[in-house]
Design a protein around this nucleic acid. Sequence first.
RNA 1: UCCCAGGUAGCUCAGUCGGUAGAGCUGGUGGCUGUUAACCACCCUGUCGGGGGUUCGAGUCCCUCCCUGGGAGCCA
Length: 462
Amino acid sequence: MSAHRIATLLRDQPLGTTVTVNGWIRTRRDAKGFSFLEVNDGSCLANLQVIVEASLPNYEAEIARLATGCAVRVIGELASSPAKGQAVELKASEITVYGWADPESYPLQKKRHSFEFLRTIAHLRPRTNSLGAVARVRSTLAHAVHDFFRERGFFLVHTPIITTSDCEGAGEMFTVTGLDLDQPPKREGRVDFSRDFFGRRTSLTVSGQLEAEIYALALGNVYTFGPTFRAENSNTSRHLAEFWMIEPEMAFCDLADDIDVAEALLKHLVGCALTECREDLGLFARFIDQGLIARLENVLARPFIRLPYSEAIEQLKVSGHDFEYPVAWGLDLQSEHERFLTETIFKQPVVVIDYPKAIKAFYMRQNDDNRTVAAMDILFPGIGEIVGGSQREERYEVLLARLTDAGLPLADYQWYLDLRRFGSARHAGFGLGFERIIQFVTGMANIREVVPFPRTPGSAGF
RNA sequence: UCCCAGGUAGCUCAGUCGGUAGAGCUGGUGGCUGUUAACCACCCUGUCGGGGGUUCGAGUCCCUCCCUGGGAGCCA
């Protein structure tokens, strides 16, 4: 049964034609001798208004009992609407009820709910205007990510979910095991992972970066876009234990090139949302964040500020602002510092580069000053860090020294060092948290609303 | 994980000095109406987050655990 999608009908408005629509009832309003139904099929934010005359055979028995949430098929003629509020409406000639929804027990009401409550009914929340809009934006942007890289000749690499490598500094990892947790094999008092499924301890990936480097040094430009897992006990509006990350890795590329790509990607995604998701963004601009559209356009308006860490420290110092945490060269930037840079000083995205090497990961390329590394963080107003990246250390001896200084087991990184022994080349990459960009684009305050089924400490329902 | 604020009807919340609970909305019934978060009238709904304690008596005070929100840390 091929049905018409409401988004298409509202766009093309084929007046006078008979169409079939499958969807869910949002509300029913009764008038004298007929009823109004609002039907939504998920294809767009807008509902289709359906006019049902009381003369339909199942009017008394079924139509008059339709309530929010019922699944229906409507066949009828599309006509221009005589009243304000909608351009077209569907004059029903036949309505079939696929599935009832008892209004006494159906949790969704035809009024606004708190996002907190909707989270407890994650199986029903995509049927709301706002969560449905988020889902459409998320899908659109996921495709836009692939479009962006494909147009630029990047290859998509599927890096492993189960891994033995620990991308240092990326946080706590979830262990993956097939062992009987009630009776784990032990050796010298500790769990003996050599008898586990893979013969050694394995975890869920915290980053595909190291594996992406392998493919960048073979195919040139590559990217990964997949789930990422962090076992950090983070309880904030911008952290998930399971999230999706985009990680490009580019050979023969330095930090400046890296930032160029990241900036272009962010602008591509924001621009794409503005042009392809206008109706859904309109909902967010009305009910979530009045300044949303202006903030998105501000991102596209001019080049991002590129600011060396040392200058950022100076800017913060001379601002005269009284910060809770100290500002000094060598200390990491705190949230309040990042926010002050993007929201008060520059009022636009800021890329901080060349951080002290002591506060950054071992794989970041050491600069000639011997005290900073070619790292960059892109800070967005309201979101904070949205991208973190660096030029990678491609020099064998320097990398070896960094690994040794960090006290990391060299045996585990032999293959990583090998990349620097055989045909090494400068390369760079970054990580973009997919949910963070969706948060920015939709204005949603909590990251748990921009992923269908959020996994956070103490919560993995559905 | 730390600091702060919360958890009361299906939802959003009020509840005074400790005396076993209310409102609006939703829903139901009736009316009205080319309506559109419809409108008008009436009606239903409670393990006051879980456990323990103080007290003649606890939604209210104390302890503890769980969860949520805001901020912080960690990061994307």
